[in-house]
Design a protein around this nucleic acid. Structure first.
Lengths: 206, 206
DNA sequence: ATGATTAGATTGACAGCGTCAAGAAAGAAC
DNA sequence: GTTCTTTCTTGACGCTGTCAATCTAATCAT
């Protein structure tokens, strides 16, 4: 009955997404082509169109998954951190950067407007917004204590400032603009990011 | 003699670059195709290959020009700023972001590793390095005063931290991740960036 | 159960892309 | 003036995303 059919259908859908993901991680976003995805998933070159309206729809789904995973990274890091707000903020930033360095292609996809117009994909947009809300809530809890803004319109300036610092560091490292001065292995680069982020959050904490 | 020939040659080269630039600014990086560039420059679809080995070479040239212009932005802003280091730093960051918001596609091109591998284009790399050196010198002058590192190995941590803050803000605004909360017109967005950057540099100054 | 309808998947086609290769045109050298 | 070299064009190949039509298979009505 319908069960076996729908399972099979989901299987194909999942294998298409899986092929897309591995392709992206292997050869970068540019290597993710509809036809190659279909080839890897073992279906005809047109089959993906029965599951996704176009290439952008696949990217939107992958981006949405990415935002979910980033959310998990951040929630677990903040939960493990010590109670002090400064510690929570630092943990949040570290998780953000750790995610970026460990999932470079997904991170790029998530933060490049022309890759997929999130306005056209409400599901993915909701997942992104949930992430940003978590950032705002975590950082904002600290920010409101040192700002004079009222509750109805919390001052976003400190939130965005701190978020920008973490995001910029992630981006610059990801794109290799900081040279190899900070090591080549992932561990070395994570450690370097931690040092820089520690400095930043120290500055922002006072 | 050779003069008219080389002038004409340079003209074609310049018109190819001009066509590339306008195409990029109109339709984004994805719209920059060799064949469309050739069409706009009024030459055959293969002519650009006599001036650039491939598509990436054009991107490298455009990126190099971008780094030159960013350098000018920053030098003139720092020159006009008041003498205090904090003011110079703020001016530097503002110029950085102003450049990004006014030249979004070039900025993207300049900071995306997969667009052109700068290691393969020493000229463009030199222009990029000159920019980064200016950032390091301007910010580093402040950083060394508050760090305990010796001169032979100046502490890059504060430099990168501040650079990241500006770069992240530019990136997030450019990619529309901060929503429309900060206005839609360019002026409004520049003003918002100024406010956030003012907060950041205030935090970093103490 | 059988015929009608419909949903799913495939094959084929088209226009566009980057780029290699070969030929044409034009200028310089002797 | 004839050769040679450099500059440019035309043509081709394989790739891409996606539309259109066909073929298959499953659902439903009777």
């Amino acid at each position: 009955m319908a069960v076996t059919k729908s399972i099979s259908r989901d299987d194909v859908r999942a294998s298409i997404l899986q092929a897309s993901l591995s392709l992206m991680n292997e050869g970068g976003l540019g290597a993710l082509s509809m036809r190659e995805v279909a080839r890897r998933a073992g279906v005809s070159h047109q089959a993906p169109y029965h599951y996704f309206t176009d290439r952008e729809a696949i990217l939107a789904e992958l981006a949405g998954d990415g935002f979910d995973r980033l959310y998990d990274y951040m929630v677990s890091a903040v939960g493990l951190a010590r109670k002090e707000r400064a510690e929570k903020n630092r943990a949040l930033g570290e998780a953000y950067i750790r995610f970026a360095l460990n999932n470079p292609e997904i991170f790029r996809l998530m933060f490049r407007a022309e890759m997929c117009d999130l306005a056209r994909y409400p599901d993915a947009k909701a997942k992104a917004d949930r992430c940003f809300q978590l950032v705002a809530d975590t950082l904002g809890a600290a920010a409101t204590t040192m700002s004079t803004s009222d509750k109805t319109s919390p001052d976003l300036v400190p939130v965005i400032a701190a978020w920008s610092a973490a995001h910029g560091l992630a981006t610059l490292m990801l794109e290799g603009k900081l040279g190899e001065a900070f090591g080549e292995t992932l561990d070395q680069r994570e450690e370097a990011a931690r040092r820089i982020l520690a400095f930043t959050s120290q500055q922002f904490s006072k």
